[in-house]
Amino acid sequence: MRVTQAVSGALAAMLAALLAVVLWSLPETQGLRDPVAAAMDQAGVAHPVTAVLLNFRAYDTFLELGVLLLAVLGAWSLGRHTPLPARPVPGPVMPGTLRLLVPVAVVTGVYLLWAGSHAPGGAFQAGAVLGAAGVLWVLSRPRDLPAPPSPLLRLGLVAGTALFLAVGIAGLVVGHGFMGYPPPWAGALILIIETAATISIALTLVALFLGGAPAEREG
């Protein structure tokens, strides 16, 4: 074992050094700044990162939502997940904090979603904030939180991916190419997709948090 560690350490150090030297000596490039800037007037949103994520490279983002969904499906397929967390947090601190925190998180999440069109933000940031609020919520109220009915939960998880795909196919049928939007509608469609994606991402994060609970707690 010691030998393995030494060898792997030496090899990893060599790899890191090699990478560092090569990266150090790279000339700086302009990357894709100029093509992005040139297309911004047709992007439907004003923030370049959101434009890249949801318009120019929308297919990446769609597949990434697929990865997120697949992670839940995979975690579920491992069998036995408890619908409620294993250990409730005792005491009044958690519920009290939550009463203050969850509304703030919801407002922040919705703001981030909206801000994404012109400033840093967007579906993923919003979904992460809402997801975190959801995780806290489940942690604090393990007894009286009813498990949502399964079809509805599935709909919520799949909504982002399904809507994105539907819009993508519509784009192909209408003639703007797969994953394409008619330019005048781009802004509105992106906002709708992002809203659905936010809901799905937040739910997915909560589901993933719950999904891997130990088997013996099933019931």
Partner: peptide, 22 residues
């Protein structure tokens, strides 16, 4: 800054989160 790598990293983070959770 070039926006494309930022978008790639955002995508990469979500993929990493999914893989980690699974």
């Amino acid at each position: 800054p070039d926006p494309v790598p930022h978008a790639l990293v955002l995508t990469g983070i979500v993929v990493a989160v999914s893989a980690t959770a699974f």
